[in-house]
Amino acid sequence: MLEILIDNRNGKVWNITSLVPSLTYKTKRIGAASSLDMTVLKGSPFQSASFEVNNGDVIRVRKDNINVFYGYVFEVSTGMDERISIKAYDQIRYLLSNYFYKFQGVTASQIVKKIADDFGLETGVLVDTKYKIPSMLEDNKKLLDIICKALDLTLIHSGGNFILLDDFGKLSLRNVEEMKVDFVIGDYSLMFDYGMKRSIDGDTYNHIIIYEDNKEAGIRKHHPKKDDASIAKWGRLLLYQQADEKMNVAQINEQLSQLMMLKNREQKSISIDAIGDLRVRAGSYVPVVIDELGIHHYFLVDECSHKFEADSHTMKLELRVI
Rank of each mutant, 00 (worst) to 15 (best):
K130E: 04
R62D: 15
V125A: 05
V112A: 00
T107V: 01
N206G: 15
G43K: 13
V40P: 00
I185C: 08
A232T: 06
Y131P: 02
D37E: 02
D57Y: 11
D213E: 12
L5P: 11
I209Q: 12
V249F: 09
G283C: 00
F308D: 06
V127A: 06
L173A: 06
V321H: 14
Y205V: 00
I209L: 12
F69R: 13
V13K: 13
K226W: 01
W14H: 08
I156C: 10
I185N: 04
P224M: 09
V58C: 11
S172M: 10
G56F: 02
G235L: 05
Q110R: 02
D37L: 04
N65D: 15
H207W: 10
L164M: 02
C304M: 07
I322F: 14
S257K: 12
A108Q: 07
I111A: 02
D90N: 05
F74L: 07
E138G: 11
I163W: 07
G202R: 14
V13A: 08
D117W: 12
Y205M: 10
I86D: 11
V76L: 11
S257C: 14
M261H: 03
F192R: 09
F74Y: 00
H313M: 12
A310K: 11
S271R: 08
R62Q: 15
I115S: 09
L259A: 07
K42P: 14
N15K: 10
F46I: 02
H306Q: 04
I275K: 04
L151N: 01
N8A: 13
F299I: 05
K141W: 07
M196R: 14
F119C: 00
V249Y: 08
A310D: 11
N161P: 01
R220A: 03
E82M: 15
L153H: 08
L143V: 04
S97W: 06
E122K: 07
E303I: 06
G79C: 15
D81K: 15
K42R: 15
L256Q: 05
F74M: 06
V280W: 05
N175Y: 01
F119W: 05
R62T: 15
S284Y: 05
Y94V: 03
N98Y: 02
D302F: 12
F100I: 04
D128F: 09
T123C: 08
T27C: 01
F103Q: 04
I210D: 12
W234P: 10
S230D: 02
A243D: 08
R236F: 05
